[in-house]
């Protein structure tokens, strides 16, 4: 039985399967790519053939245009499989965002699972993560420090609702990533009983519409109204979602004395929230926290774990204490969208 290290390797474009002749989440255009999910650091434009879930392909088309989302697009439902040059390829839900999937590869009796980004908490906007036993588990490590243990999301949403009660004269503007976090937060607010329209920055409209089209109900959504210079500020007492740091742009001046909130796993560390001038940090993450990373590595029973990006030193050390071999892949270019450390700090006004 060939060890996955003999048929799966890191190239300049990212992780590459030799016998199958395809990349997984390549960081540059390649002839054949399997894509785990639609965040731009995983789904890049201009590949030849693209294999992904139907939702991920739809997201890619919405973000990069039909002509750049892969010359040949092959949609595969979770659980289905295809063979390429003797390599079995299967997609299994990863629980990260709508359409996100792990890639399960089988070659001559040995199995590698590439998780992409994932989380273990329930998310009303996507299918939950399913652990698959394997010989090598390729994991992310965005929040791989024991200080990152995300609190229950209900508690964070309750914090927001309490603030809306306490400050009815102020708009609550929440910085969210346009794919995933935005729609999950809307769904969580709906579950907590927030029935009022939720106001969206222009940069968030398209993907919310796509989620609805793909069957994820989000309730009443309205664009943040335009305002003339000198007009009184608006949306007191309302929830406004915007890309991170939109509150620092002139766009925010139309809002009534905004309470600046951010929904991100990084909000766990006070200095991160302070440095960004966040008044109400909401610790809501679409990535596995420390406990979930370790629990997942244990559940898939892999004797070897490869870490794609994030804080691999702590995770590899912790795995070594559990007699699991860890290996850092140092994949460059990952972790640049959603909660990656390199996420943009300022967005253009929309």
């Amino acid at each position: 039985m060939p060890h996955p290290a003999t048929w799966l390797r890191v190239t300049e474009a990212g992780l590459y399967c030799d016998p199958g002749d395809f990349h997984i989440d390549p960081t540059r255009a390649v002839p054949r790519a399997v894509i785990t999910h639609g965040h731009s650091d995983h789904a890049r434009p201009d590949h030849g053939a693209v294999l992904a879930t139907a939702e991920t392909l739809a997201i890619m088309r919405a973000r990069m245009g039909d002509d750049r989302a892969g010359a040949a697009q092959q949609a595969m439902a979770p659980g289905e499989g295809v063979m390429r040059n003797g390599v079995g390829i299967r997609l299994v839900p990863a629980g990260h965002v709508l359409g996100s999937a792990q890639v399960v590869l089988d070659w001559q009796g040995s199995r590698a699972v590439i998780s992409g980004d994932y989380k273990r908490r329930p998310d009303p906007t996507c299918a939950p993560f399913e652990p698959v036993a394997c010989d090598v588990f390729v994991t992310e490590a965005t929040f791989a420090l024991p200080v990152f243990r995300h609190p229950p999301v209900e508690q964070e949403v309750a914090k927001l609702l309490e603030s809306l009660r306490l400050f009815p004269d102020r708009a609550h503007v929440i910085g969210v990533y346009s794919l995933g976090k935005c729609q999950r937060l809307i769904a969580l607010l709906r579950r907590a009983g927030w029935e009022r329209p939720i106001y969206l920055h222009g940069a968030l409209m398209a993907l919310c519409a796509l989620y609805e089209e793909l069957g994820v109900a989000l309730g009443p959504l309205l664009p943040v109204p335009l305002s003339k210079r000198g007009a009184p500020p608006t949306l007191a007492g309302e929830v406004v979602l915007a890309p991170p740091s939109a509150e620092t742009t002139p766009w925010a001046r139309r809002l009534a004395e905004p309470v600046v909130c951010a929904a991100s796993g990084w909000m766990r560390v006070r200095q991160r929230a302070k440095a960004r001038g966040i008044e109400l940090p909401l610790i809501i993450s679409d990535h596995a926290d420390w406990d979930e990373l370790l629990a997942t590595c244990a559940e898939v029973e892999a004797p070897e774990v490869w870490v794609t990006h994030g804080r691999e030193d702590a995770l590899i050390h912790a795995l070594s204490l559990r007699d699991v071999r860890g290996r850092a892949l140092h994949l460059v270019g990952l972790g640049e969208e959603d909660e990656g450390e390199a996420a943009p700090v300022e967005t253009a006004p929309a």
């Binding site: 420090l145 024991p146 200080v147 243990r149 766990r268 560390v269 050390h317």
Partner: peptide, 27 residues
């Protein structure tokens, strides 16, 4: 209650010991 290497990496990242203690304390 913690592994020394993980505590070191965590404190290094957070920068404040009371906060590190609060976050790393095992439930």
């Amino acid at each position: 209650r913690t592994d020394p290497e993980l505590l070191r990496l965590s404190y290094d990242y957070v920068g404040d010991f009371a906060e590190t203690a609060a976050l790393i304390w095992p439930d």
